[in-house]
Design a protein around this nucleic acid. Structure first.
Lengths: 168, 168
DNA sequence: ATAAACTTTCAAAAAGTTTTGAAAGTTTAA
DNA sequence: TTAAACTTTCAAAACTTTTTGAAAGTTTAT
């Protein structure tokens, strides 16, 4: 396979994966493009490579910066803004985990806590089932939360290395 | 907070979380409803509780069965089909992980392998960056894959227990 | 064999999300 | 200050996904 075809496949695959995980397809594609680009790119170049509009390119790049996955670069003597992606995949994975934890897990944990306060008749099966389910999900969510927090602090080798050792 | 309000909040929160994770909102809501229901429910009851159409209820229940999260129950002497959800959250988490691994991670791993075959000029920065990025993502994806496979086989206490022990 | 009870399908409609592109805004150099 | 170079915004359009509900299909009891 040639590089041009490989690039295309990579961008497509990353976009698809992103959309399956609740990340907008274009955002994932722009990220993919920057990931495999040795140089920082301008909005114009992103627009041309992916055939997307100026507005879309601008919004997407801004979202990627919000996620901490892309940064601006200013070249001296140039007016244009250049964008480049963090290339270390472990840093990327942590950044994504951090953002999703903040946006999704944290609010759910909050609601689960509120739901632990629900009062009712201990003889009522509906109440009992509700209580048990909420308690179980709470426990799991807290375990996931703790694991994520550790991951956010950890180095890749340590994290997978240690887990791997236990796994065999 | 009263049970009725708690139920509503729970169903809403589960639905929102689902949609953020690429799982259809209604599917997550039906799952939530069955999770906190002490008895198996009929299509009619699901329709009524969530105010959704017959077609939608039927499709959704079928999807949940495909995911291995819900099962049919036949009550003797009754024509109607009843549906109930697996209540053990660790089993649910594993089931979801299994399904998403199959649908999403496995295809990506396959493409990444193809992309390792891309040939080009070793002096070309575009080629070098492409190769490095693909190799790094490959490594991470394989680590995630191995961890998931272990999780799929593991017991909750063992999995989190062991990880937790290392974490402090 | 029939009809009642129930389930499934699927085309069309509704809802939700993403993209466009032109206009407005901002920054810079001279 | 001006105008050129560039970035941002946002309402409307395009696209995607989900939902509806009526019709078709299936099963069961008699």
């Amino acid at each position: 396979m040639k590089l041009a075809e490989g690039k295309e496949k990579f961008i497509e695959a990353w976009g698809k994966l992103g959309s399956e995980w609740g990340i907008n397809r274009t955002m994932a594609q722009v990220h993919a493009l920057l990931l495999i680009s040795p140089e920082a790119l301008t909005t114009e170049e992103i627009m041309a490579e992916l055939s997307i509009s100026r507005g879309n390119a601008n919004m997407t790049v801004r979202d990627l910066m919000d996620w901490g996955l892309v940064e601006k670069q200013h070249k001296t003597g140039e007016r244009k803004e250049y964008f480049y992606a963090e290339k270390d995949t472990w840093v990327i994975a942590r950044q994504v985990a951090k953002e999703r934890k903040k946006r999704e897990l944290d609010p759910v944990l909050k609601i689960l806590n509120q739901l632990s306060e629900v009062t009712g008749d201990v003889k009522d099966p509906a109440y009992k089932t509700f209580k048990t389910s909420v308690a179980n999900i709470n426990k799991l969510a807290n375990n996931v939360n703790k694991t994520l927090e550790t991951m956010l602090k950890a180095e890749e080798n340590w994290f997978f290395g240690t887990v791997m050792k236990i796994l065999k």
